[in-house]
Amino acid sequence: MTPPRLTRLQLPLAMALPLLALAGWWASTRGSGYRLIPAPGEVGWALWDLGVGGINDDAFSGMLLTHLLASASRVYGAFLLAAAVALPLGLLIGRVWLARALLDPVLQVLRPVPVTAWLPLSMIVFGLGPRSAFFLVALGAFYPILVNTVFGVRSVEPRLFEAAAMLGTTPAAMFTRVVLPASLPGIFTGLRLGLGLSWVVIVVGEMTGVETGLGAMIMDARQLSRTEIVIAGMVTIGAVGYLSDQAVLRLGRRVLRWSPQHA
């Protein structure tokens, strides 16, 4: 919690390190001659050209929105798919002994396998291209959602079941009246982590055999040694990932108003 007195300082403090890093970057890339890393100004122009074109007029100009939309549609599509599978599965594993005994060991063994390790297999199964990227993102988002949902369900206070039972809640109604609302904070944490990870994985997924998408754009730029475009792509991903997370966070604050940890 931020002490109210200090809220005015939050923004300047948050900006301090990035501005410092920017200054350092700028200072170290000053002057002429050959450099491995482009200057901040070049990245700024690259971003402008990517966004609206009119500077270089090459294959990258004005393409940012196209790439961004391609990536975003994969991210949200795959995330929704992951959530659609992981949420019911998590509720089931958390609540039903048989489901837990059957599924939990398998999922626990598969969990440490990093998403990137699935890349070759997924290219064999789904072919080289967007479908493979979609699968990887869905897989990446799946585990955080599943694990946190199970955790949310498992950590419902037993007292609340007793309270509901003595007030006349039937065992069948327990799920909607107690389990679901009580595990919402856990579910929400899972969704937030899952979406964040989706933005991480999408870039890896788009790096091979995909035409459009921020990952493809970065990969193309790398091959052409257009490092300023690589960095512009990184900046874009950071920004949209952040905005996307803020949106989820805001939604969470609304839905979880009742929770002292979220209000």
């Binding site: 007292r159 609340l160 007793e162 309270a163 929770s259």
Partner: peptide, 16 residues
């Protein structure tokens, strides 16, 4: 059952 209400030391209210 609802014929017997229980009041707990730790309240047991539904936080949501």
């Amino acid at each position: 059952g609802p014929d017997r209400g229980m009041v707990f030391q730790d309240y047991g209210l539904f936080p949501w």
